[in-house]
Structures are given as C-alpha cells and as structure tokens.
Simulated scan of single mutants.
Amino acid sequence: MVGKVEHELEVRVPASELWEIYGGLEVGKMVTKLLPDVFESVEVVEGDGGVGTVLNVIFPKGTSLVTYLKEKFIVIDNEKRVKVVEVIEGGFLDLGFSLYQVYLQIIEKDSKSSIIKSSIEYEVKPGSEANASFVSIQNLQLVAEAIGKYLTEKV
C-alpha cells in the first residue's frame, strides 16, 4: 500500500530566509525550542547538514505513537529549495512501513512571501495496511506554522 499526505502554508517571509532554516540543520534546532511538547530532542548522529546527514529525533513520552526515529537527508537541492528526508530506523518503520519519506519545499511566491510545502510519502507492508491511518501531516504543519510565526514576529 502506497500513500501520500500534504500540507501547504503561505508565510510572509522571503523564500531565501526560510530555506536557510529548512535547508540544513537549523530546522532541527528550532523545533525543539519552538515546539518542545512535540519534539523532545533532535541530535546529529553523523554529517554536517548536507546529503547523508543522519538525525536522531526523540518525541516526548506519551505524546506520539512513536518514541524516536532516525532520519537521513537524501536530497538537498538549493536551487529548487527541496529537501527529502527518509526514516531509516524506528518511527513508522517499526509499525510495518517499508518506506517513510518527508518532502519539504520552499516556493517563492514574491519577494516577501513564500509557501512551505510539506508532504509525506509512505509504503506499508502487506498485513500492516491498517497502520496507514496513523500517518499525519500535523507535526510538519505545526513546524511550518511555528517557524513562519517566529520569522514574521522577529522582523
């Protein structure tokens, strides 16, 4: 079984400013500050923020169906402002998923506003199809809203 969920949020922030956060490690630092009830910690396991970087993401106890996951940056396209992250351990892989990828794209609307496009693509192993109902874009939506709010209030 294959599926996809998406979310888009327009923010009054230049695309270049958003990409500075989303394109590397800064987003992990910000989510633990801005959303401590959603993300307990985000630690670099290996890498410097480029392709191949592996992060360990820990969720607060009792707040999520999964307690942790390790994700790897598999695509970072600075021209198109696209980042693809794949879960390589834990998370939904422990619930019968064979693939769980997060796509993040910053789309320039004009010089002062952008769209944060977030999506999750997944594949579920036979016998675990019911677990597809657990997939939610909510955390990525919360991240986009929190970062958008932080950057617009900072200005």
Rank of each mutant, 00 (worst) to 15 (best):
L104V: 12
L142T: 10
V66I: 15
S111I: 15
D110N: 15
V75K: 12
Y122M: 08
I88P: 07
E10P: 03
I115N: 01
R81T: 07
E108H: 05
V2L: 11
L142N: 15
K80P: 00
V102N: 06
L140P: 01
D94E: 14
L93F: 08
F59W: 06
G90S: 09
S64Y: 04
M30A: 14
E6S: 13
F59A: 02
G52D: 02
E108P: 01
L35Q: 11
N56A: 04
V85W: 03
F92A: 01
A132G: 14
G91W: 06
L142C: 02
N131A: 11
S98A: 06
V85A: 05
E79R: 11
L99V: 08
E43W: 03
S118I: 02
G52Y: 03
E17S: 13
E108W: 03
D37A: 14
F92S: 01
L18G: 03
V27Y: 04
R12W: 09
S133K: 15
L35G: 07
E40R: 13
E26Q: 13
Q101L: 08
E79W: 03
I106A: 12
E20Y: 11
L55M: 10
N139K: 15
L34A: 05
A132C: 11
V38P: 00
F39C: 01
V82K: 09
K61T: 08
S119R: 07
N131C: 10
D77L: 11
G50N: 03
G90V: 08
V87W: 00
S136L: 08
E89H: 07
Q138H: 14
V85Q: 07
D37W: 05
K61W: 00
Y68P: 03
T53S: 03
R12Q: 15
K83S: 07
N131L: 10
W19Y: 12
L9Q: 13
G47V: 08
Y122K: 08
D110E: 12
S114H: 09
V44Y: 05
D94V: 03
F134H: 15
G28E: 06
L9V: 08
K112P: 00
G96V: 13
S118E: 09
K33T: 11
Q141E: 15
I106N: 02
I58D: 01
K83C: 09
G127D: 05
L55H: 06
I76P: 01
S64E: 06
K125P: 00
E20Q: 14
G49I: 09
V44M: 03
G96N: 11
D48R: 13
L34M: 09
E17A: 13
Q101T: 14
Q105E: 15
V135A: 12
V27F: 11
Y68I: 01
V75F: 02
P14H: 14
F97N: 05
N78D: 15
Q138I: 13
E79A: 12
V75S: 04
V87I: 15
I107D: 00
V45C: 07
S118G: 12
N139L: 10
A15D: 00
G127V: 14
V143Y: 02
E71Q: 12
N139H: 14
K4C: 11
L18Y: 10
L95V: 12
V51I: 15
I107W: 05
N139F: 02
T63H: 07
S113V: 04
V124P: 07
L69G: 00
V42S: 11
V143N: 03
I88R: 00
L65T: 10
I106K: 08
V84L: 09
K29E: 12
S64K: 11
P36M: 08
